[in-house]
Amino acid sequence: MRIVVTSSGASEAAPPINFENIQGLSTFSTGLAECIAKLANVMHAPELATRLANKGIALHIAAPGPLASRLFENASQEIRDHVRDMTVQGIQNEKSSGPHLGA
């Protein structure tokens, strides 16, 4: 048996996780929530793999990267612009600060 955890480059754009405001109630942002969720996937996967190894369960984490899809085919122009802007910002953040695990 195996478990596949998916993540993305968004994990590298996440700031350190604020455990005092884990739900983001005071500063919620959909883009930030996505980045933090992906970072959490990356951070918990090694521990989960360790805990499941003696049960014969393999755990893999994958960040498939961009792929061609029709996901936004029927989305409004506003949504398409928002996703484009988040992607551009994520690429700029990655180039300026490099990857990190929220330390």
Rank of each mutant, 00 (worst) to 15 (best):
Phe19Cys: 10
Phe19Trp: 15
Glu20Pro: 03
Asn21Gln: 02
Asn21Pro: 01
Asn21Tyr: 04
Asn21Thr: 05
Ile22Ser: 12
Gln23Asn: 12
Gln23Glu: 13
Gln23Ala: 12
Gly24Glu: 08
Leu25Glu: 13
Leu25Phe: 05
Leu25Gln: 13
Leu25Trp: 07
Phe28Val: 03
Phe28Ala: 02
Thr30His: 15
Thr30Asp: 14
Ala33Gln: 09
Glu34Gly: 01
Glu34Pro: 01
Ile36Asp: 05
Ile36Lys: 13
Ala37Leu: 05
Lys38Pro: 03
Leu39His: 03
Leu39Glu: 11
Ala40Pro: 06
Asn41Trp: 09
Val42Ser: 12
Met43Ser: 05
Ala45Leu: 11
Pro46Tyr: 03
Pro46Ala: 05
Pro46Met: 06
Glu47Ile: 01
Leu48Val: 14
Leu48Met: 13
Ala49Asn: 07
Ala49Phe: 10
Thr50Leu: 09
Thr50Gly: 08
Thr50Ala: 07
Leu52Trp: 12
Leu52His: 07
Ala53Tyr: 04
Ala53Pro: 01
Asn54Ser: 11
Lys55Met: 08
Gly56Ala: 07
Gly56Phe: 06
Gly56Val: 08
Ile57Cys: 02
Ile57Ser: 07
Ala58Pro: 00
Ala58Asp: 15
Leu59Ala: 10
Leu59Ile: 15
Leu59Gln: 01
His60Ser: 10
His60Val: 10
Ile61Thr: 15
Ile61Lys: 07
Ile61Cys: 11
Ala62Met: 10
Ala62Gly: 01
Ala62Glu: 11
Ala62Trp: 08
Ala63His: 13
Ala63Tyr: 04
Pro64Glu: 11
Gly65Trp: 09
Pro66Asp: 05
Pro66Phe: 14
Pro66Asn: 01
Pro66Trp: 13
Leu67Asp: 04
Leu67Ala: 13
Leu67Trp: 04
Arg70Gly: 07
Arg70Val: 07
Leu71Val: 07
Phe72Cys: 04
Phe72Gln: 14
Glu73Thr: 06
Glu73Val: 00
Glu73Arg: 01
Glu73Leu: 00
Glu73Cys: 00
Ala75Phe: 15
Ala75Gly: 01
Ser76Tyr: 11
Gln77Lys: 11
Gln77Asp: 13
Gln77Met: 09
